[in-house]
């Protein structure tokens, strides 16, 4: 077990879920993004500093799926921002706990942002702290805490991570 300590039969399923999740956002299929969550989900984007210090505020903070749906409507109908796309690179899912139908996982990500004029930047790096409900037909995020490594957001964060 020493060398292969993190092998867990749930890793392939978590990896596949996160690949689908990232592909959904990167393909601008934001209307389907809330479908990855349970009805009573908790979703938050925070920073490593706030997370480590137990400071609760989020850049985005939702305590159910309806709030995620509202955010998508706002992005489509209300908010003004220049056209941009993300490319998520998600890597290294690790199972960190869980009981019963609930799987806890921690996974690294990078997001490259490409603006409409072709300008590209490394927009975000961090980790997903996920609690995944596996009781239904498809696995769903009961909780997703997006912990950004940096405090700094370039210009704005419109599209979710």
């Amino acid at each position: 077990m020493a060398i292969w300590g993190n092998v867990d039969s749930n890793v392939p399923a978590v990896t596949a879920l996160l690949a689908d999740y990232a592909a959904c956002i990167d393909a601008d299929a934001l209307e389907q993004w809330p479908d990855f969550f349970t009805t009573e989900c908790h979703y938050k984007i925070t920073t490593a500093y706030n997370h480590a210090k137990g400071l609760p505020v989020g850049l985005i903070y939702a305590h159910n799926r309806a709030m995620l749906e509202d955010r998508v409507v706002a992005l489509r109908k209300a908010n003004i921002y220049e056209a941009q796309r993300y490319r998520h690179v998600v890597s290294g899912a690790r199972i960190t706990g869980g009981t019963g139908d609930l799987v806890e996982a921690e996974t690294s990500f990078l997001v490259v942002r490409t603006m409409h004029d072709g300008a590209q930047d490394l927009f975000a790096s961090g980790r997903y702290l996920d609690r995944i409900d596996t009781s239904g037909n498809r696995p769903l995020f009961a909780e997703k805490i997006v912990v950004l490594d940096s405090d700094k957001i370039d210009t704005l964060l419109a599209i979710p991570l």
Binding site: G58, L59, A78, L156
Partner: peptide, 19 residues
């Protein structure tokens, strides 16, 4: 915490000010 969704870099009513 809920209303923080309206402000900051990802804020519903302030993200535009960043751009």
């Amino acid at each position: 915490l809920r209303q923080a969704n309206m402000v900051g870099p990802a804020g519903y009513i302030s993200m535009e000010d960043g751009a």
